[in-house]
Design a protein around this nucleic acid. Structure first.
Length: 411
DNA sequence: TTTTGAGTTGTTCGA
DNA sequence: GTCGAACAACTCAAA
């Protein structure tokens, strides 16, 4: 049923229309949604309605995920060990046997009335890549269990292969519950007795736990959506660079792996996790552009855009968050490409200008002999850009910028 | 209470 | 080609 308007008013009216005595719902864990839901609940209770909420969105309640000092965790591994590794989350409850329908069925707006669809249809690539809804989510999980899980431990890092679960948008929109995923993965790994399945399941469940960790951080440190968790990063010498930001957004940095990822994102609303790290690291460390600008772009373009995950991911990359990447960990986009997309298949798919460049140079076309580029029908600076910045120089500059936080090293 | 060891995802350099 | 060291500072939890 679709309604529009102030949540508390719309729900209170609906409750009246169907003479409901109680309202059941699942809890949300984003600060704004928590505030809204609290307001709705107090409205309903004032009308004498029973309000009961449940937790389906997470494996554990962020409010309860505390260390022995009663403080929230700031490091993932202790969080994992103390909260999830030895404590299996509950199995999901089955659906209700019967839900009596109200008579008559209340009025509903047509979905189009919400005017959610963009005026310019930029979503064709997204429609082609995803099947939204609970059925699509279950199909995706079944595919992952059959085709991804056994290879997941190593294969998840390969953007040219398909061993990741691709469940993130379904999780974000509540189309599948993390507990359902957890137990399906666990069950499959136990049944098989196959070493790859067991290792894959372990690695994957850890990833699910990262989502929990992200929500725990978001609930306990809500300001981190905009500001660094580590306050010393207020001193970091970020650089505003509109042109470089635009080149990154459009996949025209001249680094093939970064550009492939950014174009995959623009087209499908999703980017492989390994490539997210490389692309994000490039924005923050090579270009020194504030992580918030990258977070905003991901927020606008990802179909799985999730406040908790996005915040954790960007702060981790920038080094200013919980359990952050060490400042000296600066991805080399060429090396990452050669290691995780060895044949260049991923790059060629999303950066077709490079299709004819031999494998050896597909991740670093500027190093290719002129003849090889000519044969490939490509001119740097024309069909495909020169690197926007030199890797070695950028690395030195980033290290110097991070030293700025300590104020010891001189450039 | 204090100490100690470990901590998602890397790169470069020199031996 | 491989391998280990170095590249901080800080949090957490077990000893």
């Amino acid at each position: 049923m679709v309604r529009r308007g102030d949540s508390a008013e719309a729900l209170t009216r609906l409750v009246g229309e169907v003479s409901a005595k109680a309202v059941y719902s699942n809890r949300c864990h984003e600060p704004a949604a928590m505030a809204r839901d609290a307001e709705v609940a107090s409205h309903l209770r004032a009308e004498g309605i029973t309000v009961r909420t449940f937790d389906a969105a997470l494996l554990l309640e962020p409010e309860k995920a505390l260390n022995k000092q009663g403080a929230p965790f700031r490091v993932f591994t202790p969080f994992w060990r103390s909260c999830l590794e030895r404590h299996e989350p509950k199995e999901p409850a089955g659906g209700p046997a019967r839900i009596p329908a109200p008579k008559p069925w209340p009025a509903s707006l047509p979905l189009d009335a919400l005017e959610l669809a963009p005026k310019v249809d930029w979503a064709a690539g997204i429609r082609a890549a995803w099947r939204p809804g609970a059925q699509g989510a279950r199909a995706q999980l079944a595919r992952f269990l059959d085709e991804g899980l056994a290879q997941y431990a190593q294969g998840r890092d390969r953007p040219d292969l398909a061993f990741t679960s691709r469940l993130s948008p379904h999780l974000h929109f509540g189309e599948i519950a993390p507990r359902a995923i957890w137990h399906a993965v666990r069950e499959r790994s136990l049944l098989g007795g196959d070493a790859g399945l067991v290792r894959g399941a372990e690695a994957y469940l850890r990833q699910l736990a990262w989502r929990e960790f992200a929500y725990s951080l978001l609930v306990h440190f809500p300001h981190t959506t905009d500001a660094p968790l580590r306050p010393d990063f207020a001193r970091f010498p970020w650089q505003e660079d509109e042109a470089a930001l635009r080149a990154w957004q459009r996949g025209r940095t001249g680094y093939p792996l970064v550009d492939a990822g950014m174009r995959e994102l623009w087209t499908t609303g999703w980017m492989h996790n390994r490539v997210r790290m490389v692309a994000a690291s490039f924005l923050v460390k090579h270009l020194l552009i504030p992580w918030q600008a990258g977070a905003r772009w991901f927020w606008d373009t990802l179909v799985d855009a999730d406040l908790a995950n996005n915040t954790l991911g960007w702060q981790w990359t920038a080094g200013c968050g919980a359990d952050a990447a060490p400042y000296f960990r600066i991805f080399n986009p060429v090396r990452q490409g050669q290691r995780f997309d060895p044949s260049g298949r991923y790059v060629r798919r999303w950066v077709p200008e490079l299709a004819g460049v031999p494998d050896k140079w597909v991740h670093c076309p500027w190093q290719a002999p002129a003849a090889a580029l000519k044969d490939a029908g490509i001119r740097l600076g024309q069909e495909y850009p020169h690197p926007i910045i030199d890797h070695t120089e950028a690395r030195e500059r980033a290290l110097a910028a991070y030293d700025h936080l300590k104020g010891t090293r001189t450039v």
